[in-house]
Design a protein around this nucleic acid. Structure first.
Lengths: 347, 347
DNA sequence: CTGAAAGCGCTTACAG
DNA sequence: CTGAAAGCGCTTACAG
C-alpha cells in the first residue's frame, strides 16, 4: 500500500536541487536547524509539490524506532479496558505514537506469543495490563531493555513503572460502608491471588475486617480463578449455600460482582434485600444493572493517559528513575447496598 | 527493541557455511523448496543455535508487505465492537497477521488521520467499521488499491467487500413482534441516516409498519445524530413527551435503547409497563439491564471472523471479485417487551 | 551549511 | 541448487 508509485526522498531532492541527505535533514524536525532556511524552504516546497510521504518502513528500519507502542490487555470483553485504552491512545497519538492493541484473553500462551510479536515488530515500548505478581516474562522483557509501564496490576519486588490504584484503600471504604450499614457477616469473592489486584484487595479485606472488629471465618472467602462472570457466579454460589451465609459480598471486581448477581438470582435471593453486593472498578454500564452496583470507582481514562505519559518519558529518557503512580479510588454507593440487613439472630 | 546485539541473517549464513541469500531462502516457507534439504537442515540448525530472529522491519521494507492489518472502529466504548474485534484478531492471527486497532470516536477528522496513519504504516489491508453511505475517503483508499473489507456498515453504490447483517429483516421481526403484542403506536429512534445501519433500519421500520397495516405518523420517528446513549435519551424524550406517545419504541441500536431507558425513567414511565423498548445488536451486558432488553441478535464474533477471512482472501488474490456477506439476525425477546400495552382509547 | 558515501538487514532476479 | 550483487528508502557520521 504505497501512495501510487511512491515519491521518494531522492525525487524531492532532485526537484529541490539538493542532495538527498540535505533533503532528509530539511524534512526532519530534529535536524532542520542544520540546514539553511532558504534550503529548507525549497525542499519543503518540493516535497509538498510532489506529495512526498516519507516511507515509515525505511525510516524505522534505519533508525530502529517505530514510533509504535504495544498495549496488552487481558480481556477485551471487559468494559473496564476500553476507557483505559482510550486514555492511552489519546496521549500517545499526541506524541506521534501509534498504538498496537493486543488481547491475551487471559491465555498465558497467547500472552507469550503477543510479547514476542511485539518485540519482533519493534515496538518502542509496552503498556501492560496483564502483569502477574511474579512475572518472569515481563522481567525478561525489562532486562532486554524494553520500556514498560504497567497498568492496573503490578509486579512485586521489581522495578517497573506503573500506574495503578490503591486497592486496599478502596476495599477499606467498602468494608466501612458495609459495617456502617450494620452488616455482620461480610463475605469476599476474591480475585486470583496471582495478580496484585486479587491479592491486595483480599489483603485489604482481611485488614479492614479486622480493623472493624470482625473476625473472618474462612467460609466467608471464596477465591476466583479469574476475573470472570462465571467465576463470580460459582464463588458466590458457594458463599450463599452454606449454613451461615454472608449478608453482604465484596467482589474483587465488577465482573465477579456480575457473577454474584447471577448466583443470587439462581439461589432465589434478592439483592440488596437478602444479600448486598459490592464490586470494584465502576466499569461502564455497571450503573445500569438491576440493581445498580455499589462499587469502587477508579479513574479509567486517567490511568491510561498517565501510563502513556510515563511510557513516553521513559522512552525518551531511558536512564531516568522509574515512577510508580498510585491513584486514589472512591466508593460509589448504589442500589446493591441500598438497605441494611434484616437483623438475624446471630450472637 | 532488538534481541540483544541482534543476530543477523549474515551470522546464520556464516555459521551454516552458506551465502546469506541461501540462508534467506532456506528460512522462508515460500522459497525453502528451492534449497537442498541438507542445506535447509544446516541453516535451520544454525539459526536455532544462534537464536536468530528475522528483522521484520528489514523484511517489510524490502518486500513492501507488513503482515499487519488495520481495524478501524467508531467507538471503543460501545461493547458491540470488542467481540467483533476478537473475531477479526483470532482469524488474522492464524494467518500470521497482526492487528492494528484504531478508534475514531466518531470524529471524522480523527478518522482521516487514522486512515493516513494506516497507509503510512503500510498495513496490508483494512477492516473498517466506520463506513458511511457516501464515503469519499474510503472510495479514495479503495482506488489507491488498499484491500478493504467493511464490517457492519456498508457504502452504497460501490464495490466494497463487506460483512454485515440484514438490517431490514431484523427490524421486520421486531415490528411483527410488537404488532403481535398488540402495540398500535410504535415509535422509532432512528440512527444517523448517513450510515447504512441507521438508514436501512429506518427504511425497514417504515416498510414493516406499512406491511402490518400501521400508518406512520412523523411524530413517531425521531432521528439520532449518533449511536450514543445521550442521543437515544433526547430522541426518546421527544417521542414520549408528545400528546399521543408510542407504547413501544424501536431503537436503531442498543446504545440508543439505553438512552430510551434513561428518558423513560426521567419521564416517570416504566418499561415495559408503560412503554416497551427494543434495541438492535444484542451487545454484551444488554441482557443484564433492568429490564433486560429485547433486541436483535447479530453474530458479533462471526462477523469479525468472516471479515478477516474475506480480507485475507483479498490480500492474497487481489483480482478475485469482491464478496458481500449478509448475515441473518434473530430476535431475542426479553423483559423490555414483556407485556402488551394497556388498551388505551385511541381509534 | 551541504555533499558523497556507507549502511541498516533483508529478498530476489540473475548467473552459473 | 547456490553464490554474488543489487537494491528497497531512508539517516547519519564524515569531509569539506
Amino acid at each position: 500500500m504505497d501512495a501510487r508509485e511512491a515519491v521518494t526522498l531522492r525525487d524531492v531532492a532532485r526537484a529541490a536541487g539538493v542532495h538527498p541527505g540535505t533533503a532528509s535533514r530539511a524534512l526532519n524536525d530534529a535536524t532542520r536547524s542544520l540546514v539553511r532556511p532558504e534550503t529548507v524552504e525549497r525542499v519543503v516546497r518540493a516535497a509538498n509539490a510532489l506529495g512526498y510521504r516519507p516511507n515509515h518502513l525505511a525510516r524505522s528500519f534505519k533508525t530502529r524506532r517505530t514510533r509504535s507502542v504495544g498495549v496488552v490487555i487481558p480481556d477485551i470483553n471487559n468494559p473496564l479496558f476500553p476507557p483505559i485504552v482510550l486514555g492511552v491512545e489519546d496521549r500517545l497519538a499526541n506524541e506521534g505514537y501509534v498504538t498496537l492493541l493486543a488481547n491475551t484473553q487471559n491465555d498465558p500462551v497467547k500472552r507469550v506469543r503477543i510479547f514476542e510479536e511485539m518485540v519482533e515488530r519493534h515496538v518502542d515500548g509496552l503498556i501492560v495490563a496483564t502483569a502477574r505478581r511474579e512475572d518472569p516474562d515481563l522481567v525478561g522483557l525489562l532486562e532486554q531493555g524494553v520500556p514498560i509501564v504497567l497498568v492496573n496490576r503490578v509486579v512485586e519486588d521489581r522495578s517497573f513503572s506503573s500506574v495503578s490504584v490503591d486497592d486496599a484503600a478502596g476495599i477499606r471504604a467498602v468494608v466501612e460502608h458495609l459495617v456502617e450499614l450494620g452488616h455482620e457477616r461480610i463475605g469476599h469473592v476474591a480475585g486470583p491471588q496471582s495478580m496484585s489486584t486479587g491479592y491486595a484487595r483480599c489483603e485489604g479485606y482481611l485488614a479492614s475486617m479486622q480493623a472493624a472488629g470482625r473476625s473472618v471465618h474462612p467460609s466467608l472467602i471464596s477465591s476466583a480463578e479469574g476475573f470472570t462472570i462465571a467465576e463470580g457466579e460459582s464463588c458466590a454460589a458457594e458463599l450463599v449455600s452454606q449454613p451461615n451465609p454472608p449478608t453482604a459480598i465484596i467482589a474483587a471486581n465488577d465482573m465477579l460482582a456480575l457473577g454474584c448477581y447471577t448466583a443470587l438470582h439462581a439461589a432465589g435471593l434478592r439483592c440488596p434485600e437478602d444479600v448486598s453486593v459490592v464490586g470494584f472498578n465502576d466499569m461502564p454500564f455497571i450503573d445500569r444493572l438491576s440493581p445498580p452496583l455499589t462499587t469502587v470507582r477508579i479513574p479509567h481514562y486517567e490511568i491510561g493517559a498517565q501510563a502513556a505519559e510515563l511510557l513516553v518519558d521513559q522512552m525518551r529518557h531511558p536512564d531516568e528513575p522509574l515512577k510508580v503512580l498510585l491513584l486514589v479510588p472512591s466508593l460509589v454507593v448504589r442500589g446493591s447496598t441500598a438497605r441494611a440487613p434484616v437483623a438475624v439472630g446471630v450472637g
